[in-house]
């Protein structure tokens, strides 16, 4: 089809295109070794894209969360880490010590056939496997996003059952997807560029919950034919 004859950009994505976009995304991930993989559900034709990252939490964030963390036994572990860090670093710089606790974030990109768009699910835990609560996850959301999202906290970030695994995950609600995808897709179309839906979408929603999408995805990953 000629570029000029294209129909208006659609925010919707059919399941087949979702798969193709993911495949191209994963090919690039393999090249730059940033850890994305495809997880197939046994005995079905369904699956999702997955990535696990370890996120350092700055001591300032941790202190703010102290109250939340106290209830969990993992406080001891985190404190130990901090102690160890402090001891290590006292040898060098004295005044400033960058103290980090580490959290494990697991991100899943799924296809929603109801909304015909991709949806980001994730869960977070401490290194010894204690899951973070919704409140704790909220406090890790970048302050720039937090205020806007929190105007309707139950609408944007909620705990939901993972539709393929049946386990509790957090989900960024897809109802706003059209709001930001439409301008992005319209712009790309006006400039006659073919963008990979998953790349554009994930670059917007990922950073909200600590997931970075390297710039090379935008330049190197094409849209499916």
């Amino acid at each position: 089809m000629m570029a000029g004859e294209r129909s208006p950009a659609s925010c919707y994505l059919d399941e087949r295109t979702f798969r193709l976009c993911c495949r191209l995304f994963l090919q690039h991930s393999e090249t730059i070794q940033d850890g994305w993989s495809w997880e197939q559900i046994k005995g079905t034709d369904e699956g999702f894209m997955k990535k696990t990252v370890l996120l350092p939490v700055k001591s300032s964030v941790l202190h703010k969360q102290h109250g939340c963390f106290m209830q969990a036994e993992n406080m001891d572990l985190l404190t130990d880490d901090i102690q160890a860090n402090v001891e290590d670093e006292t040898a060098g710089v004295q005044a400033v010590c960058e103290i980090h606790a580490v959290l494990r974030y697991e991100y899943h990109v799924l296809y929603s056939c109801s909304y015909q768009i991709p949806v980001l699910y994730f869960r977070a835990s401490t290194l010894d496997g204690n899951p973070l609560s919704l409140e704790e996850v909220w406090s890790n959301v970048h302050p720039n996003y937090r205020q806007r999202l929190q105007q309707g906290p139950w609408d944007t970030l909620t705990q939901q059952e993972h539709p393929l695994l049946g386990q509790p995950f957090f989900m960024l609600h897809p109802c706003r997807t059209e709001e930001f995808m439409k301008p992005a897709l319209d712009l790309a179309q006006a400039e006659n560029k073919r963008v990979n839906y998953i790349v554009s979408w994930l670059s917007v929603v990922g950073p909200v919950v600590g997931l970075d999408v390297p710039l090379s995805y935008c330049t190197e990953v094409s849209a499916p034919d």
């Binding site: 909304y115 919704l134 139950w154 909620t158 939901q160 386990q167 609600h173």
Partner: peptide, 26 residues
């Protein structure tokens, strides 16, 4: 934690219920 969603208030049930209705209407 690995099997059940938390439900600390009726507003959580309301949000879940409304999100199902919205999905159904989609």
């Amino acid at each position: 934690e690995h099997d059940l969603l938390h439900c600390t208030s009726n507003s959580v049930i309301e949000a879940h219920f409304m999100s199902s209705i919205k999905e159904a209407d989609a």
